[in-house]
């Protein structure tokens, strides 16, 4: 760059990045890189420390781990059976299965309701559109933490305690999803819609054959964060599951594993099992997760 600029404007000295670096610079930049790696490694260890310490505790025999002088950074009298015990004791496979059912119901429901609503807001003309849209967005002000008590009342009246519908149905509509997918629809060039109108595609076929496929990145990242949120839910399932033996989701099952400090190795093993599906999700869909989580923060 520096050379080009000098050639283009003869006689003008260009400061900044030079083609010839000062002699000590390579050395210094090498040192800076090493310093930066040290910082990065240090921060990585700090981030991973809680997992490492608890993993060591899970693998250790409890009695050996609490002996005076036992380092918390290392395992003591390793016992791999702890995962098996956590799974058996917490009935984790069954809980994981229930979590999956609830999560798929919620995410699937949210996709259907918000794709339809987003389409109406993006493409259809109807009276009171702005008011209705504002009402949709107003639901963002009413998290389950606020509406918990009356919703529990409603679900009790419906006799939906300890049921899949009780855990899933209240969350099947979402303002966030409607908003994001509507933004996606509005991003489809209007000439595409015009072309399909000339070719005879009505709203229904335009929605499924064009609008949805063309908004796939947005829908994909919303799906992933919706899945993440639904799988990680705690408060609501905790409240509507009174028969925890038969209806716990995996998050609630963890609660039953943390009753006594003595069995904390089992609790940690259970927690790590509970995290596995999300770790897989993170590896497979990291781009969508990043896009979903930053959707509100950064434009584009």
């Amino acid at each position: 760059m520096g050379i080009e600029a000098e050639e283009l404007v003869p006689g003008v000295v260009v400061a900044g990045p030079r083609s010839e670096a000062p002699p000590e610079a390579p050395n210094r930049s090498w040192l800076a890189a090493v310093g930066w790696y040290v910082l990065l490694i240090g921060l990585s260890l700090l981030v991973l420390l809680p997992v490492w310490l608890t993993l060591m505790r899970a693998l250790s025999t409890p009695a050996a781990a609490v002996k005076p002088g036992a380092s918390p950074f290392l395992p003591h009298e390793v016992q791999w059976g702890v995962f098996r015990r956590a799974i058996d004791q917490g009935n984790l496979w069954a809980a994981l299965g229930r979590s999956m059912v609830v999560t798929i119901l919620i995410t699937g429901g949210q996709l259907v309701t918000s794709v339809l609503a987003a389409y109406a807001f993006a493409y259809l003309r109807f009276p009171f559109k702005r008011v209705i849209f504002a009402l949709f967005m107003a639901t963002l002000l009413l998290p389950i933490e606020v509406t918990l008590l009356p919703n529990l009342h409603t679900v009790r009246d419906l006799d939906w305690f300890n049921s899949y519908q009780g855990m899933a149905v209240p969350f099947m509509a979402t303002a966030l999803g409607t908003f994001l997918i509507r933004q996606g629809f509005l991003g489809v060039p209007s000439e595409i819609r015009d072309a399909t109108r000339l070719e005879g595609y009505g709203h229904w076929s335009y929605l499924w054959k064009f609008a949805v496929p063309l908004t796939r990145p947005v829908i994909a990242s919303f799906t992933v964060i919706s899945f993440l949120a639904a799988y990680n839910q705690y408060l609501w399932p905790r409240a509507v599951v009174t028969d925890s033996n038969n209806w716990s989701t995996i998050q609630i099952a963890l609660r039953d594993l943390t009753t006594t400090p003595e069995t904390s190795n089992i609790a940690v093993a259970g927690a790590l099992v509970a995290a596995i599906p999300i770790v897989v999700l993170l590896i497979l869909f990291s781009r969508q997760i990043v896009q979903g989580l930053t959707a509100g923060a950064v434009k584009g």
Binding site: L254, R255, L257, T258, G270, L272, A275, I278, L281
Partner: peptide, 21 residues
């Protein structure tokens, strides 16, 4: 990847780890 890894934990999972810690 390491720095973003804690998004893989739920509140419950993180709580269990810190309960033990």
């Amino acid at each position: 990847t390491i720095f973003s890894s804690t998004v893989a934990t739920s509140v419950a999972v993180a709580s269990v780890l810190f309960y033990v810690l």
